[in-house]
Design a protein around this nucleic acid. Structure first.
Lengths: 340, 340
DNA sequence: CTGAAAGCGCTTACAG
DNA sequence: CTGAAAGCGCTTACAG
């Protein structure tokens, strides 16, 4: 079933040229005459010559493969990043190998090792939730160009690409203030997470700049920021004597849980309680009322990550300065905060 | 910054052994004495020897890479398949390279070529919507083991893995009949699509087996089966004198459009009109009422595809019989058809 | 049980 | 402008 494989050697034999010349002709080496080049290229074309990229990569100590690790490939936002990565990588002649850590730190470490062993030219990683033992990751950073995106950690010395969490959250909360809300609750993550902390910081700054007192009671921290937690925390918030008039959650899924619960109790959104999420999931327009949220430009994050990674890979010098890149997220105002 | 690379040669020098012996020791060749093996393995371990898989693959004419092509990586169902593929492939020692065709036939062809050129051991593909010119795909099938999943085409002679579209649709429609519905509309795709046709066939069979007359008026075909089309086709259906009492759509997104429109007109679901989708998207539990639908076990489809592909890759004989594998989807009954 | 040697398909200094 | 040769890191028939 296998077709005969055409190699440089075969072409050389047919053309009565040396392998070196054929190789150089195909690579447009300036030393080779135009006539020879044409001859060689023509034959290569008609015989459907396909260079063996493995031999090439092996020879050049380069594989042109980028390794990508994500915690969960089924998250919509992640897939938009992946799309950006695939597009930019393929445009620049790189292939992409993807692994999913399933938020398992051990798996993540294994995958990093496997990728190194496999000979990827560089790695793009989004960390698992609980990546505390940075020790396991540091060795790989020193082996191969390494960049973090989305779920990052300042403890790891490398270039990191995130959304402008703090500023975007600030804008979201300021929007709530602008529509007249004065008692704004936040639902965030309890465990330290870069994104959650930044968004919380943005929340605090917005309140401060608008002289709104911070009330610890309506700052809710949960272990697992999910639709389910959004529901139960809303129940909690509704049980307070002084109910909030707006709820900002650091993810859309939690925000959807909030809306579902408010709907259940026939609480008017946004009049009684406004809701803002973060991510612009596909779900955010399925729920009624549609959710005001921050659109995270996943494709841009993916493309940018690839750009910086390839820069490191192809850089001739070894002294790379680590950068913190923030991609702008945009507030999308929908019915959950605004009544047309 | 690059660490020194340990090779077989280096190990051999240190141990005063030949490269061949070291290689064999590491690969547990029976000829090598236990003492030597131990010595070699110990040093390899302490020196963190990592075999160069590219050299290995190059030597053995095998890359242990599987190429995967999907039309749209952001679709939830696709990501669950991808998850299954990644898991099964990694378990069997294969890496996965993913490409997204964006439903562009030309891109799809290019990607197939690139993958072949890159030397993947086999390809797993889900086709673009309009893959009519099979000619472009046939050459690759003859070059490398090739399997289709999800979006398949009977015109291509290869093993194909799909959900049991016909049967699942039959079950869905029979369920509607069982809850007392007698005038069941279907929203399907106009252009020939394997999945759509199969689901339509299941619909017809269910009506037939229950002696319900087929009414062409409520068999709606659209170009693009989307939420938006779900909405407009519902408007159309509602304009009929004889309205349907149930709507079966061949995708969840269309079904969600249906529900949104019915909600808008305060039509009771499921009492006045019941709704069934197909896929079990995440969205199907966000919408109210929650959507009855067919759960497609994406992970199983992914794993099964990998299983059959690797079987072909590692098969010694060339005569492989093409199989049509159907993975069972399960009807998930929710509020859009059932009132507890 | 171990080693020398060939070879996978390519690139590239070196020589002419 | 072209060629012979070395070498990337590994495996494996062949020989001893």
């Amino acid at each position: 079933m296998k077709k005969e494989i055409i190699t440089l050697k075969k072409l050389a034999e047919i053309l009565n040229l040396s392998i070196s010349t054929v190789s150089r002709a195909l690579n447009d080496h300036p030393d080779i005459s135009e006539t020879t080049k044409e001859k060689v290229k023509k034959l290569a074309h008609t015989m459907h010559y396909i260079p063996n990229l493995f031999a090439k990569g092996f020879r050049k100590h380069r594989t042109n493969i980028i390794g990508v690790i994500v915690p969960n490939i089924t998250h919509y936002f992640t897939t938009t990043i992946v799309r950006g990565i695939l597009e930019e990588a393929s445009k620049r002649g790189y292939r992409v190998i993807i692994s999913e850590s399933n938020n398992d730190v051990k798996k993540q470490t294994e995958m990093l090792d496997t990728m190194i062993q496999f000979g990827v030219d560089g790695i793009l990683a989004s960390l698992t939730k609980m990546t505390r033992d940075i020790d396991k990751i540091l060795p790989t950073i020193n082996t191969v160009p390494f960049i973090l995106f989305d779920k990052v950690s300042t403890k790891i010395p490398c270039t990191q690409i995130t959304i402008n969490d703090e500023e975007a959250a600030f804008n979201a909360v300021e929007h709530l203030i602008n529509i007249g809300k004065k008692r704004i609750a936040i639902i965030k993550e309890r465990e330290f997470s870069y994104n959650s902390e930044k968004r919380y910081a943005g929340y605090l700054r917005a309140l401060k700049e608008h002289n709104i007192e911070v009330d610890e009671k309506i700052i809710i921290s949960v272990d697992d920021i999910s639709l389910h937690q959004g529901k139960s925390m809303t129940n909690l918030l509704l049980s307070f004597k002084k109910r909030p008039d707006a709820i900002f959650t650091i993810t859309d899924s939690a925000a959807i849980g909030v809306i579902k619960t408010l709907n259940k109790f026939n609480i008017k959104i946004p009049e009684d309680i406004a809701v803002v999420g973060f991510s612009n999931n596909i779900n955010s327009t399925i729920i009624e009322p549609k959710l005001t949220t921050i659109d995270q430009p996943g494709e841009t994050i993916g493309k940018t990550s690839v750009k910086y990674l390839i820069e490191e890979i192809e850089s001739v010098t070894d002294n790379i300065t680590n950068k913190m890149i923030e991609i702008k997220g945009n507030l999308i105002i929908r019915d959950s905060t605004f009544k047309a």
